[in-house]
Design a protein around this nucleic acid. Structure first.
Lengths: 155, 155
DNA sequence: TTTTCATGTAACTTACATTATTACATGATG
DNA sequence: CATCATGTAATAATGTAAGTTACATGAAAA
């Protein structure tokens, strides 16, 4: 199973964008993911439609955040991406005739549905500002480590 | 994202096996999934190592259950398959240098880890006998529908 | 003891989804 | 009007899982 990295990738990108505080081009943003600008545009298209970011064409154009980070939850970003598949496990047939297969699917369904609910609830409770705050903390710790070289770096 | 159907498939197969009450060949089992016998053997190999099923070579050989359905949980089957990926979303880099990406991954990690815990707990609480019981119920309802044709079939 | 049947696996091929790239249209700025 | 940037369709490249083939191993039947 190859994993889908869109959610993690786009979060990475827009937090850099927010940090930067001015318009950034797809090309610049693509550097963070070591990918092609078109890939950035494709992912950002959903966020633009959802009103999370704004794009401007032409000279001096690029992407900017449309809202403060406090006002954007992981849920918002996830939905803006088009709510990509969360689970890697699926069914061979969606609507099987076989009653055994129906019973199997029903059982798995209930387990996955509950997990999905919990996951989305959690996504709703985390804002981009929370992640940015965690980043700020990590940066502080990182700088502190650099300032006291007599202390061995943590593993 | 293409989904992995191993869990659903193997559950389907071994419930048929349990229902049948005698050894079944990979070839016969493959018919249920409309697939190749080798695919069955590959998936069953894990279950055999985990002691859930037994295989016998040669004439009259094939697969049989090694334990009663009551003694096998979804967890057991999931682990026997090699604990395949549950979530479709992953990270672009596992151990990124970028502190923003670290913060993003940490946030997603905590959400997914909680969901995974819940999912596995639920898997542990469902036995194959539970699914078989659900199947029995469905069969009863199905037969009842056939017996009373004046009643329109449910959608 | 030889043939047949079945599993056990490795190696290879095919199918397919995702990502990456190319190409070109649209629109804004200098 | 040249340049820069997004918007998007079309195509190519890539990677993974599923499917297939081939052959070894072992057990039962003839």
């Amino acid at each position: 199973m190859k994993s889908d990295n869109k959610l993690s990738s786009i979060l990475h990108v827009i937090l850099h964008l927010a940090e930067h505080n001015q318009a950034m081009t797809s090309e610049t943003l693509a550097l963070y993911l070591k990918t092609n600008p078109v890939v950035i545009r494709r992912m950002m298209a959903g966020l633009r439609q959802a009103g999370l970011v704004v794009s401007v064409k032409g000279h001096g154009g690029g992407w900017t955040m449309a809202k403060p980070l406090e006002a954007i939850s992981l849920q918002d970003v996830y939905q803006a991406l088009g709510a990509p598949r969360l689970f890697a496990q699926g069914y061979r047939q969606e609507a099987p005739q076989c009653l055994i297969e129906q019973a199997v699917n029903a059982s798995l369904d209930s387990a996955f549905a509950a997990a999905e609910q919990q996951l989305l609830r959690k996504f709703g409770n985390v804002s981009l500002a929370d992640i940015a705050a965690d980043f700020a903390l990590r940066r502080q710790q990182h700088l502190a480590t650099l300032d006291s070289p007599q202390q061995p770096p943590q593993e």
